[in-house]
Design a protein around this nucleic acid. Sequence first.
DNA 1: CGAGGTTTTGATGGAGGTCAAACCCCGTGG
DNA 2: CCACGGGGTTTGACCTCCATCAAAACCTCG
Lengths: 258, 258
Amino acid sequence: MTSFPAALSPSSSSSPARGGIAAAAIRRLTALTPLDDADLRLLDTAADRALTYPLRHAFQTIGRPMADPLLVLQGWAARVRILPDGRRQFMSFYLPGDIIGPAHHEQPIATATVVALTECLACPAPTGPAGSGLAQAYAVSEALDEAYLLGRVVQLGRLNAQERIGDFLLEIYERLSLAGLTVGGSFEMPLTQEMLADALGLTPVHVNRMIQQARRDGDLMWKSGRVLLRDPERTARTIGRVSPQVTGTQTMAQASAG
Amino acid sequence: MTSFPAALSPSSSSSPARGGIAAAAIRRLTALTPLDDADLRLLDTAADRALTYPLRHAFQTIGRPMADPLLVLQGWAARVRILPDGRRQFMSFYLPGDIIGPAHHEQPIATATVVALTECLACPAPTGPAGSGLAQAYAVSEALDEAYLLGRVVQLGRLNAQERIGDFLLEIYERLSLAGLTVGGSFEMPLTQEMLADALGLTPVHVNRMIQQARRDGDLMWKSGRVLLRDPERTARTIGRVSPQVTGTQTMAQASAG
DNA sequence: CGAGGTTTTGATGGAGGTCAAACCCCGTGG
DNA sequence: CCACGGGGTTTGACCTCCATCAAAACCTCG
């Protein structure tokens, strides 16, 4: 519910100790579609131009001209809308390997505000030639983006609080897995319960109670910014979650590769 | 909540009494961006190949290969998801002048099921050369599509029942206005209250109560498939609705025209 | 140690869900 | 012309999930 105060500007602390700052992002993109050496080289050089963006940085502002697409290397960002009376809703999240902005088709005016939820490392998304693996990866990424947005509509419209939390954590888990950012069912969760509430259309208080219940039921651990899902498969089954990527993505990449 | 029984197949009753069957769609597209004669000719010839699709026809099915993009000429369709236990959620609506399917970027697998909510008239969306008004119109249309989807997330996440109904009707009103399908604040509404409920994440019963309240408050008339908004502007103000098109679209077309 | 953000707990209320029946509207057909 | 039927709308009684308000407890970091 708290609205964001004025944001700082990106600090151009260009990669100090490089090495694998783009590793997660590259893992995700290659998971979406095979990338060849040319693609990887493009990514590497793009990563050299990575910048660190502070917490709350506004990557885009609704109604303002859209910036060039950015590839997130580290950190989380989100599309957010704040209503006149202060109500806040997060609409989608950007994780390492995601593209902020119009990957493909032009779209001069931003339809949403995108803010950094953590300190973020991001670089300009390198554009591969048409038909390249990179272009393909962006296409799949964008399709996934929309699929998740559709999923969010169902989540908010028809799932109860418990289901929403489970569904959300599963989505994050699956997405971070692609980037290799999970360790046996556990992953880093920089969101506060309040932010989670604003993503799920609930109150922080109620989110908290439901999380505790999930803990008591042995479905969940959540401590100091780290979440562990005890049995993702089972949770997914009990709330009837269908994940776009597991089935969808693979097939998507294959189908358009052939 | 009722799930759709098996659907019939499209009847190829190709335009019997033509004349302006594509009029609404063309009005909408020209409202999005200026179209020249070549564009209009493409649209006209495409309209010759229009088909009538029966109620409940599945234009696309989730997980199945995606059909070629269709331009809706008459009738309503919607993206829908049905949960295993029967809960239903409409995610977005297609009105005359909207494109069902991937206007631009490829995307082989459908991420959602699209069904006809009324009998629909639709034709293959003619593809204009890159940079043509038609291509431009599709781009804007697609951007609007996403903007509406984002709006729906906010609606479901943070608006109460009254606000949701108002917001929804305003959205429809605005969109139909573009296609010239409104008459002084009133327009045809083929949805039942049950469908409306499944779009707004509510129960039919509660939708009904809220509508009656709106009627009592003099905000609304709804009779035999026709809705009249007494004072759209005021309603929009009281629920703090921001419409993407009024501000957004115009600017979008202009910005990318220049 | 203290301060500020975050999580947790309790008590209470209200928006919206559920169940069930009645009503209405219209088209069908006898 | 009226009975019949079926989908949609309306109404009522009751209940529950989640919101609200407020305070306490807990971290974490300076």
